[in-house]
């Protein structure tokens, strides 16, 4: 390519690059810089505060902070339960759709995608009200069948949030898996049927291995989102502050450290830590899932 043309091409990307530097690299650099300092109140507490270099102290504090590490563990455990359930349901629905005629599949696909059209905050508001013992229909419904469930009890909060996330996420994940399924060569099925394989067997031995990539991908996206979960617990906290504490998830702790405790330095260190945890988790998940395919 001619030299001048190369530079003209590069010029198309310059506005984005500048923006990226100011809105991504600079903030990250600033966060890392802030995380290495601590505010100290000077003198007798009269002269305000000054920032002092403290090296990795904030990180050490974060790694031994039982509230923070506890919240990471809580979210990871939750992810290990909710994500497989959601992906399994999505996979089954995608397999069902794939076995229908295209017209029927199209209809069900639209219906099942309705939750995905609803903003996350609104979805949480709707389910909070469905769970509510005052206005929600689920409590009287439970009573008919002899259950008296309290969706906001400490032991029920995660299942309640999990149901909300599953409801919200099934359609999206189903569509991704479904479009991967459409790429399976149809003659494979014919051959398998001639060999006497049942539909269940075909699903298990041909279809599911074929959409493995899509499953790994949706799993990865879900993990990235889950470690950063904030909206749903924040809205639940609005309604049941006694069961959803302000240190329920890592991002809630970071937000509180920054805006309620006014401790930006510590919040910065925690967000860098969370980024590292996220990177490690994604890497491990990727290694773990791609190893098995070899």
């Amino acid at each position: 390519m001619i030299r001048s043309l190369r530079w003209k091409g590069a010029a198309f990307t310059v506005p984005f690059q500048l923006g990226f530097v100011f809105l991504y690299l600079l903030p990250i650099g600033y966060a890392v810089y802030q995380s290495l300092y601590r505010s100290q109140s000077s003198g007798l507490g009269l002269g305000g505060t000054t920032d002092e270099f403290s090296g990795l102290d904030n990180y050490q504090q974060g790694l031994t902070d039982s509230a923070f590490m506890g919240s990471v563990l809580r979210v990871v455990l939750f992810a290990c339960v909710q994500i497989p359930i959601m992906l399994l349901v999505s996979l089954v629905l995608a397999l069902f759709l794939d076995a229908l005629s295209s017209r029927m599949a199209g209809r069900f696909r639209i219906l099942l995608l309705v939750p995905y059209m609803i903003p996350g905050v609104v979805a949480a508001i709707v389910w909070l009200n469905l769970y509510s013992p005052d206005v929600g229909p689920l409590t009287p419904l439970g009573e008919i069948f002899g259950f008296s469930w309290n969706f906001f009890a400490p032991s029920m909060v995660w299942p309640s949030i999990g149901n909300l996330l599953t409801w919200h996420g099934i359609g999206y994940n189903m569509v991704i898996i479904y479009s991967a399924l459409q790429g399976v060569p149809r003659d494979l099925f014919e051959a398998a049927r001639l060999d006497g394989a049942s539909e269940l067997r075909i699903a298990r031995s041909i279809k599911i291995p074929f959409v493995r990539g899509a499953l790994v991908l949706t799993g990865m996206l879900s993990i990235i989102q889950m470690l950063q979960i904030f909206n749903e617990p924040a809205l639940f906290r609005n309604v049941t502050p006694q069961t959803v504490s302000d240190s329920f998830t890592p991002i809630m702790i970071i937000y509180n450290q920054a805006f309620n405790a006014g401790n930006y330095h510590y919040a910065a260190a925690l967000s860098v830590l969370l980024a590292l945890i996220l990177g490690v988790a994604s890497f491990l998940f990727y290694r773990f899932t791609s190893k098995e395919t070899d």
Partner: peptide, 27 residues
């Protein structure tokens, strides 16, 4: 266009998918 640094820019684009929102938003 094939300009020097193109791969770096693209790597930044893809890498940023992994950055948690709090790490960007607070600073």
């Amino acid at each position: 266009f094939d300009f020097p640094g193109r791969n770096l820019v693209f790597a930044c684009v893809v890498g940023s998918f992994l950055i948690p929102i709090a790490l960007l938003t607070l600073p």
